[in-house]
Design a protein around this nucleic acid. Structure first.
Ligand SMILES: [Mn+2]
Ligand SMILES: [Mn+2]
Ligand SMILES: [Mn+2]
Ligand SMILES: [Mn+2]
Lengths: 244, 244
DNA sequence: GGCGATCATTAGTCACGCCTAAACTCTAGA
DNA sequence: TCTAGAGTTTAGGCGTGACTAATGATCGCC
């Protein structure tokens, strides 16, 4: 056994100093950074938004933002929201890399369902070392995209670009090959999968309900018709296929 | 993201009631149970012994034993030590299964060194679900022993029996095939490995230093001579090969 | 330009796991 | 039998990350 846990004592954070990172960031910190990363794509993110994303209360977020600011991972002005610093973004992407590699492993090697891997990866991402991560990436063949179609950040922090058009931008008659579904909720994923609209699917836009709230599509292969709300269709992204 | 952490509030432990297990046991609890499992093979384990094993102080152990007792995972009498209950043993073995499967995966599939996997498994074992564990076992071919030669508890809680004779019980001239090295410290493992005494090695006892504090052996294959202290030799276990 | 709704922050707690220092118990040896 | 020392428990605290209740800021709308 001989538990080799960090056992990090003390090292109190200097109230507002610009550095002094703790040896290892906690998993709570990591989850905040990831949440801010995906919420603050343009402009700072508000406290409440982060709270909603992480299922915590707003005061918890306020407290954590103060701490992250002290660690130099985030810029934060009270009542104005927070944004990742370079440092914070680096850490967020490190975790997202772990997360997506894990999901890839679980689906491709362990045979998990598409929609059943997120919660587990959310936990395990915090206990993987860099070495484990890179060896796993090697084992998987250095994938650039996970089975949801999401880009896997590279070890150097860069992000493979995922070319993509959401279903909502198709013109009637156009065909698309689905690459990616922009959701992590297993309910949404399982539903989309059950319609046959997961990554790899080829679809044709047959028509749009007057008002545009519903899209009518069909599977290219089988001709099966299916309908999708505009809201859900906006989450399904792919590559437009040449007309023919 | 949508962090699906337990978020377990409240549920204060009834001071001495015999049940009321929390939804999920913490990783600290798990590590205590594992430590007690391996220390209390016969008779109760003392506070200090557990403290040493886990690198915590004795008062921390006292506190945790009270809690474990309240959860019905351990029997505990102040000043007398603790022992696992049925329930506690079940949980310990569940974790040890995860731990050893992970180590097997890391060594066999990811190419980690024999001696470099323990610390990582010690952390990751706590974030694996049952489903992940069983799928991983399947992926690995339901192994019964890990690459250290340690038996992997089965999903039902039973333990494959590891037949074994320690080097210290060999008679001069006898040969043995090493199955197992009873240590988890990577220093010991790396040293033993460097001598060529890891699982799979075949050795012959050439002689014993007067007093018995040192064993002289040779590798059956190469004839290479090597020496081992009695203390270390006691940790190396194998199957005696028929005389020839 | 004032006002209220919405959003965010402060204030005060809590559970968990750990710590040090001090008091206590047990036991083995004189 | 008494007692010293090893081992254990109690007392008091800390850091982390959550919570609720109360207070404060911002902003859109009339
Ligand atoms: Mn995910
Ligand atoms: Mn996470
Ligand atoms: Mn191990
Ligand atoms: Mn552990």
């Amino acid at each position: 056994m001989t538990n080799d846990r960090p056992a990090d004592r003390g090292a109190a954070v200097a109230p507002d100093a610009g550095a002094a990172e703790p040896a290892q960031l906690s998993s709570a910190i990591g989850d905040y950074l990831k949440a801010i990363w995906q919420l603050a794509q343009d402009g700072p993110t508000g406290t409440g938004e982060i709270a909603r994303e992480l299922n915590v209360t707003a005061p918890s977020v306020t407290g954590m933002l103060g701490k992250l600011h002290g660690l130099g991972l985030v810029t934060y002005q009270p009542y104005r929201g927070a944004e990742l610093t370079q440092e914070g973004r680096r850490e967020a992407l490190r975790l997202i890399r772990r997360h997506r590699l894990l999901e890839t492993f679980m689906i491709d090697k362990l045979g998990f369902g598409w929609d059943a891997v997120h919660a587990e990866a959310e936990l395990m991402e915090h206990s993987m070392s860099d070495e484990f991560t890179e060896r796993l990436a090697e084992h998987l063949g250095q994938p650039e995209f996970d089975p949801h179609g999401d880009p896997i950040p590279r070890a150097d922090g860069s992000l493979p670009s995922a070319p993509g058009t959401p279903l909502t931008e198709l013109r009637v008659g156009q065909r698309i090959r689905v690459h990616r579904v922009l959701s992590q909720g297993s309910e949404v994923l399982a539903y989309v999968e059950s319609l046959g609209v997961g990554p790899g699917a080829e679809l044709r836009l047959v028509g749009v309900e007057p008002g545009g709230h519903l899209l009518r599509l069909e599977a290219v292969a089988s001709g099966e018709p299916l309908a999708l709300s505009r809201e859900l269709a906006a989450l399904v992204v792919g590559q437009v296929l040449p007309e023919g």
